[in-house]
């Protein structure tokens, strides 16, 4: 048993082109409903605290990954925090060049153990000082919000 012959001429190597056109509607769940409703209606974030270990999750969830306990103590927090780490990207997810490079950061939201990954707009920023910088979310006007992360336009440096 073995491969006796292989295609050895480029033009004779055939390939069949196909794609996977699949579409989803992802349920956000009860914790997600609270988060996105508060974002849309109040312009704040909702986190959730585990009574057993004290960990505060953002985005919220209904269970604690440490204790495996139900968590139900939802708390509202301001959409402000600190840049934990950041990067600058030049291409989109199709590999095409963006109009201009974008800063993306993980922002630890104050009074929580979690955070959000989002665009950061920082004019004249110093690369040395962006990590640890204080930022706040800039949201769409209330009438334009639809209850999704896109309601956050970007985070900007707090002055």
């Amino acid at each position: 048993m073995s491969i006796w012959r292989k295609v050895h001429v480029n033009k004779k190597a055939h390939a069949w082109e196909g794609d996977i056109p699949i579409y989803f509607s992802y349920t956000v769940g009860p914790a997600g409903e609270k988060f996105f409703t508060a974002l849309k209606e109040k312009g704040v974030f909702v986190a959730v605290r585990c009574r057993q270990c004290g960990k505060v999750y953002l985005p919220p969830r209904i269970y604690c990954e440490v204790c495996m306990e139900d968590v139900e103590e939802f708390v509202e927090v301001q959409p402000e925090g600190r840049v934990v780490t950041w990067t600058e990207v030049t291409r989109d997810s199709r590999g095409s060049l963006l109009e201009k490079p974008e800063l993306i950061g993980f922002i630890n939201i104050y009074n929580t153990d979690g955070g959000i990954i989002h665009k950061i707009v920082a004019k004249d920023f110093s690369k040395e000082s962006l990590t640890g910088a204080e930022v706040k979310a800039v949201l769409k006007p209330p009438a334009e919000r639809s209850g999704e992360l896109g309601d956050i336009l970007y985070f900007e440096l707090k002055v």
């Binding site: 985005p59 780490t85 990207v89 997810s93 974008e102 993306i104 990954i117 665009k119 999704e148 896109g150």
Partner: peptide
Amino acid sequence: DPVYLRHTGVDPRFLAGLEMRA
């Protein structure tokens, strides 16, 4: 994560950039 991470629309290797810097 479709709800909390895909929204950026940028090269998904941004996660590697975030991790590398940290």
